[in-house]
Write a protein that binds this DNA or RNA. Structure first.
Lengths: 330, 330
DNA sequence: GACTGATTTGCAAACGTTTGTAATATTGAT
DNA sequence: ATCAATATTACAAACGTTTGCAAATCAGTC
């Protein structure tokens, strides 16, 4: 029912190939009056290109796929905005597919869907792939890159912060302020990222010639609730004078719970977040945090995928987002 | 270079049509040993269906398009999750395209993109379309529906809350608690939604036999900053005893600013949000809010689009999300 | 008016799948 | 062995676009 290139060709008294070339902008070899007429008729008839047909014959698509984990962190949005910004200037569409965080079946489904669509590139957000899904990605010969999560396997390309450095800098920042008993809440231990951040934290203590204790580390899965639980566990009378939240949400969980327990932040307890998302500004006191370059991750990810250079892992930088939740120990 | 249905057909010594039918699950009319063999070979050869080709011939796609406004509200995520949940069970993919909030050119671009892709349905999030884009949508004959924003034009289908009722209930809730001087911050006046909420607010006053004053209404664009500005404008010595934020963010802006001014919430000033997103839980005091059924909007939107019944506007219900930011006047 | 060269346009194949219809193979009864 | 009925598979067209190459048209020159 839709009007096709053929219909236009007929009413314009030219061949379909002429219409096609004109509509795709190859107007150089055409008389300008033909170009005008064809364009006018196309608009008049309400022509809409059939992308499926075009992609079929050209064997390529203008869609970027983003596979997002369901995880309840909140930085995805920022990354996706970065992705969109570059996609827009390159006339690429973005298709977003959700996959469970570690549900390999859902992941598989998502990856398969986008491969079958022959997308131009695949960006995987905060996703840790299993063996089989790694194979699937590779076999597709579609460029792909992982964002916001470093990976164990050295041959999978990713863009993320250096998590060891994050752990190190977070601890170092507090140590330099004079804190010596520093908690770490909500870390997902057992994951590559979680373990790295912890090692960075430990290294900072080592460099400072100080000891850390096991009970200062409360693991979890980066969530608000993990922060709440950690703080409840330590309790009001804790020896800790500063706490690092493994994510902004975890940090806010810690902070709110501390406040609920009747403690003051930052005077009695300093709280430092990791991520530096917009949440930091809307809580009181404003959260001081290690700010990751999420927007930049998204931008760079797309750029790497569409430049046909080799796809290699890189780190984005991070800095301190100043707030009011951290101070020197009183 | 990718392995096609033909390749499978050759190695399996059957015709392409056999392979196609088997791979699409029409196994009823095939000998089970053929089915087994074909499936095995397909997997072995690493076959991935070419969706573009399939969509071209079947003339339909399994993609739902979501057009999202860039606006800095934060409920989109919840709606999108609702959309995904229904999409998943119906084996539909979701393509998300960003468009400016009221930039008609960007909107046009986004709509055109998804139409050209022949998507199965279009969901427009918090978008107010212009004349031309309305025509474009209509002419495509693709089912579409607007979410989270009611529309002036009676013939455009939407799913949203009844904004008049929201304004009414928000004011009524505070009036019933005994407040009589109630502010309203961040409303985007001049938009259909903003005006409706204000009229609801006014009606509640009227019903209570009370008067409201113009300077109690501070317009804006639903943002955090608008809340901040409104509260700064009223100042510490305001006569107001309660304030409605036009969005959660606006309410939080009001609340934080009030706290920064040295006021206490809710004792000196009650603050009520509109939306009821997850933000309400992470601020202190927890924000009491009118909670809209965003997840439900997403779910219902998809259901309406894929059931081939007529697409009509409906309202979703809302309720009060209890928090600690509202109390009776002291 | 024929020839040249440049400009403009058309032909036809191809992309990989689906599907209506036709063809073939199989089975069981005679 | 023959036949009918059924179970299984193959043929071929179609979807709407792009694109290499060939064809047609045109302007200018002799």
């Amino acid at each position: 029912m839709r009007v096709t290139i053929k219909d236009i060709a007929e009413t314009a008294k030219v061949s379909p190939s002429t219409v096609s070339r004109i509509l795709t902008g190859q107007t150089d070899n055409y008389a300008s009056k033909t170009v005008k007429r064809v364009c006018r008729i196309a608009v008049q008839m309400g022509y809409q290109k059939n992308t499926a047909a075009a992609e079929l014959v050209t064997q390529k698509s203008n869609v970027l796929a983003v596979i997002v984990s369901e995880t309840k962190t909140n930085f995805s949005e920022e990354i996706i905005q970065g992705i969109h910004s570059v996609a827009l200037t390159n006339r690429l569409s973005v298709m977003i597919v959700y996959a469970g965080e570690s549900d390999q079946a859902l992941q598989h489904q998502a990856i398969k869907t986008v491969i079958e669509r022959g997308v131009r590139g695949i960006l995987l957000l905060a996703i840790v792939p299993g063996e089989e899904n790694t194979r699937l990605l590779r076999s597709s010969h579609i460029p792909f890159i992982f964002l916001a999560t470093a990976l164990d396997k050295k041959d999978l390309p990713f863009i993320s912060s250096n998590d060891f450095d994050i752990g190190y800098q977070a601890a170092d920042y507090l140590l330099k302020l004079g804190h010596v008993k520093i908690g770490f809440a909500g870390l997902n231990l057992g994951t590559y990222v979680g373990d790295l951040r912890l090692r960075g934290y430990q290294r900072a203590f080592q460099k400072a010639g100080l000891d850390w204790r096991k009970e200062w580390i409360q693991s979890g899965r980066w969530t608000y609730q993990d922060g709440v639980n950690a703080m409840k566990g330590w309790g009001r009378a804790t020896e800790l004078t500063a706490i690092i939240g493994a994510s902004d949400l975890a940090a806010i969980g810690v902070m709110n719970t501390a406040l609920d327990l009747g403690m003051t932040v930052p005077d009695q307890l300093s709280v430092l977040g990791i991520d530096g998302t917009s949440l930091c500004h809307i809580v009181r006191p404003e959260l001081t945090a290690i700010r990751q370059a999420f927007y930049e991750m998204g931008r760079r990810g797309v750029q790497i995928l569409i430049n046909h250079t080799s796809i290699k892992s890189t780190f984005t930088s991070f800095d301190i987002l100043p707030g009011s939740s951290v101070t020197a120990p009183q």
